[in-house]
């Protein structure tokens, strides 16, 4: 990766081989700046970059790109998300141009949750393109400097080509079915041109290790940076909810049993997270950790600190 793709701080850290830490910031369901400000303060200097979710679980929130711009001004590096549920290929390309115009450099390409999960189940879905086609489209816009229809990205025949440049990320779920196909799907994303991967939150460590072995054996970890996703558990009820009604999350009984015996679930959740991070650091091919502390942003600093990942390296 000689020439820089987008020149973002995250890209530089990943190139230098640093153990990167990213977190998640869910924009509010209303135009309420304080919510974003408090989350930014909680995450400042604790993480290298922050995912800005796009209508997570199909529930209407402030759009990912505008929150990204706002967070960037506040000094945090955003990774804005693009889901294929709400916009067709025209709207997505227009958004990408807008995001680049406003200085956002990291994008995460997702398929997006089905609208029946959210608060507008009657809405018409789009899914004009899916996550892998989206990755290829963003890569073509950056490298081949062409739109999805093949035209060059220039205002007129004579005008300069000004293409949007992004560090391309995607999600991966090592636990969904069919298990043996999961690594092939990752390979498809790599062939499509993804630069970094954030996995689904991990509880089944053995399965994740098998998955990583397979990824390393195919040499994919050189072509793409893999960040292991974790979600600190706040209560036993939340753990059971994740197991029963969140799709694609596999929680082995040993973990459930551990939280049943723990007297303070929150503390146990943080220790469990720190253990995981320590194990990730020793695993080959894991380039960082992605902490998805849903509505518990102020726990992130504690986790990063006790995993002795502070202070964060500067991005120069």
């Amino acid at each position: 990766m000689k020439n820089s793709k987008a020149g973002s701080r995250l890209e530089k850290l990943l190139d230098r081989g640093e153990f990167v830490v990213t977190a998640e910031l869910g924009p509010p369901k209303s135009v309420d700046r304080e919510v974003i400000d408090s989350k930014v303060e909680a995450l400042r200097d604790a993480v290298d970059a922050v995912n800005i979710t796009d209508n997570q679980t199909a529930i209407v929130r402030v759009s990912s790109i505008s929150t990204g711009i706002y967070v960037a001004e506040k000094g945090l590096e955003p990774i804005f998300q693009v889901t294929c549920r709400d916009r067709n290929r025209l709207a997505i390309q227009a958004d990408l141009l807008g995001a680049c115009l406003n200085g956002l450099k990291n994008v995460l390409c997702l398929t997006g949750d089905h609208q029946s999960f959210g608060n507008h189940p009657q809405a018409k879905q789009v899914y004009d393109i899916d996550s892998i086609q989206l990755i290829k489209m963003v890569k073509d816009m950056r490298d081949e400097k062409i739109f999805q229809c093949g035209e060059e990205i220039r205002n007129s025949k004579k005008a300069e080509i000004r293409e949007p440049r992004f560090l391309i990320g995607a999600a991966a779920n090592p636990f969904a079915d069919p298990l043996e196909w999961r690594v092939n799907r990752l390979e498809k994303k790599v062939n499509a041109g993804v630069d970094f991967i954030q996995t689904q939150c991990i509880y089944d460590m053995e399965r994740f290790e098998q998955w990583m072995e397979e990824v390393v054996s195919r040499g994919l970890h050189e072509k793409v940076k893999i960040l292991a996703g974790v979600t600190p558990i706040r209560s036993l009820g939340m753990l059971r909810y994740m197991r029963d009604s969140v799709a694609g999350v596999r929680i082995p009984d040993s973990v459930i049993k551990r939280f049943e015996d723990a007297e303070n679930a929150r503390e146990e959740g943080i220790n469990f997270c720190v253990e995981q991070i320590k194990r990730f650091r020793k695993m080959k091919g894991v380039a960082g950790v992605h902490i998805m502390a849903i509505e518990w942003e102020n726990a992130v600093r504690g986790i990063v600190e006790s995993a002795d990942l502070l202070p964060r390296p500067n991005g120069v």
Binding site: S116, Y127, D130, S131, A176, R185, K188, A247, G248
Partner: peptide
């Protein structure tokens, strides 16, 4: 349910769709 062109999404679990 999402009419995808590329492979099962992250929500497929023991052969059934997430929705």
């Amino acid at each position: 349910s999402k009419g995808l062109m590329n492979g099962p999404c992250g929500g497929s679990e023991n052969g059934m769709c997430e929705i």
